[in-house]
Design a protein around this nucleic acid. Structure first.
Length: 428
RNA sequence: GUGGGUGUAGCUCAGCAGGUAGAGCCCCGGAUUGUGGAUCCGGUGGUCGUGGGUUCAAGUCCCAUCAUCCACCCCA
């Protein structure tokens, strides 16, 4: 039993998995950059007040899931539970939102003190993006199109369903909230306990309750879509038309309301049935009032957070197996040839982009070749007495039963490996 | 925060009704001197999550605790 264990809900991501993570992150980030989004790096720690004000006092996230602690002078700080509030804070504080860099992406850990379960950890990693200063539905559509592309390129599109809804503008939402409260208050006795509490604090959340009796009650509740202003309706219709035009399928989910207070108009969630109860892989929407609420000048915004822990699980199910981490394994026959082997490896690294692992430490040639095989390398290069005398190295293909090993001079060795590597790259 | 399952070698697990720990995989070495993958042989490795209790005796029973998994809840 190890003396120290990782803290509950925190994870180590080990070699084969870490490679998968990097691959997923690379695909997503590549897509974001191709849409002109630029990276912003943000602190893990913010003033607690920022989240209380930005995400909302009455949200579960703020009420009971934050890692909150006083610093040495007693100021209340929190580990970020989500990325948007910090991004907006940075945008206001630095003046970034007044410039032209209005499409931003970030990557990093988020912390929420929850009970761990499948697809849910206390530290999880998100890639998120925010687009500021664009009020029309075109940017909402761009974000969803971009995500659809990313999921497609990752090969997980079939696992995901886009659920879409609108909450209307702030005024619509207030009006709807009143209508909903008016409907539910006389029926409060029929609500489950949690929903009854929310009636006063956050009645919209009652809509997505999973309690059967509450769902029944809510089925006949007023619909947000009947409370939208002309403009709000136009915004949503505009978004839908663009999605249809782009060929992006979605499901209208009138009860999708999201657990964060800052959303207005568009809200969406990409969900999956492949991960058990934690079905949201990516979600976001529009938050036109947030910048102002956090002290900036009124600026519309829209964005999303994408849960990498869950996305990696999906990608792994779709593309199992682990790719080789080495192309060439350099071995030596006799410890005296170790330095020369290292030299040969350097020569290969100079001349090619191949991943070259040079054996180090103990072990006879036999065990070195065993290691070469296990590494997944396509070639072993062996250096020994004979090779040293001929100022070359032995090239031994490991994945091609037909091919035999040949002793080559250094120039020929480099040439052979470079040519084969290019051929393989072109084939792939 | 609530409920249920599980905690034995690095990993996956077995251990019958309490009698002083086992398999497979992995790792290391060997089966012709400098040659991988298959097979065979051998080896390293465990205070049975932790702390109490019952018992002549506990991995095995009881209690507590911690961790983990799944679900509720919540969300990415």
């Amino acid at each position: 039993m190890a003396r120290y264990q990782r803290v509950r809900g925190m994870r180590d991501i080990l070699p084969p998995d870490a490679g998968r993570w990097r691959k997923v992150e690379t695909v997503i980030v590549d897509v974001l950059q191709r849409y002109g989004y630029r990276e912003i790096r943000l602190p893990l720690v913010e003033a607690t007040e920022l989240f209380a004000r930005g995400v909302g006092e009455a949200t579960d996230m703020v009420e009971k899931e934050m890692y909150t602690f006083p610093d040495r002078k007693g100021k209340s700080l929190s580990l970020r539970p989500e990325g948007t509030a910090g991004c907006v804070r940075a945008g206001i504080e630095t003046g970034l939102l007044r410039g032209s860099a209005r499409r931003l992406w970030y990557h990093g850990s988020m912390f929420r003190y929850e009970r761990p379960q499948k697809g849910r950890n206390r530290e999880h990693t998100q890639i998120g993006a925010e687009a500021f200063g664009m009020a029309g539905p075109d940017i909402d559509a761009e974000i969803l199109t971009m995500l659809a592309r990313a999921f497609g390129e990752l090969g997980v599109a079939e696992d995901l369903t886009l659920e879409l809804n609108t909450l209307g503008a702030g005024a619509d939402r207030a009006r709807y909230r009143q209508a909903l409260t008016d409907y539910l208050t006389p029926r409060a006795d029929a609500l489950d306990e949690a929903s009854r509490l929310r009636l006063a604090t956050n009645p919209l959340r009652i809509l997505d309750s999973k309690v059967a009796s509450t769902r029944e009650l809510v089925a006949d509740a007023p619909n947000i879509h009947d409370h939208l202003s002309e403009d709000s309706r136009a915004h949503f219709d505009g978004l839908r038309a663009r999605l249809d035009h782009a060929g992006i399928p979605y499901r209208l989910s009138p009860r999708l309301v999201r657990g964060l207070d800052y959303y207005t108009h568009t809200v969406f969630e990409w969900t999956t049935t492949a991960l058990g109860a934690q079905n949201a892989v990516c979600s976001g929407g529009r938050y036109d009032g947030l910048v102002e609420r956090l002290g900036g000048r009124a600026t519309p915004g829209a964005g999303f957070g994408l849960g990498l822990d869950r996305l990696v699980l999906l990608e792994e199910a779709r593309a199992p197996g682990q790719p080789a981490h080495v192309d060439v394994y350099v071995a030596f026959a006799g410890a005296a040839h170790g330095p020369r082997a290292a030299q040969v490896a350097e020569t290969l690294r100079d001349a090619t982009r191949l991943r070259v692992l040079c054996h180090a430490g103990e072990g006879g040639l036999k065990s070195q070749l065993r290691a070469a095989d296990k590494s997944g390398a396509r070639w072993a290069v062996v250096v020994g007495d004979e090779e040293a005398r001929r100022e070359g190295a032995l090239l031994k293909p490991l994945r091609d039963a037909e091919a035999g090993q040949i002793l080559l001079g250094m120039d020929a060795l480099v040439e052979q490996l470079a040519a084969n590597a290019n051929a393989a790259a072109n084939a792939a």
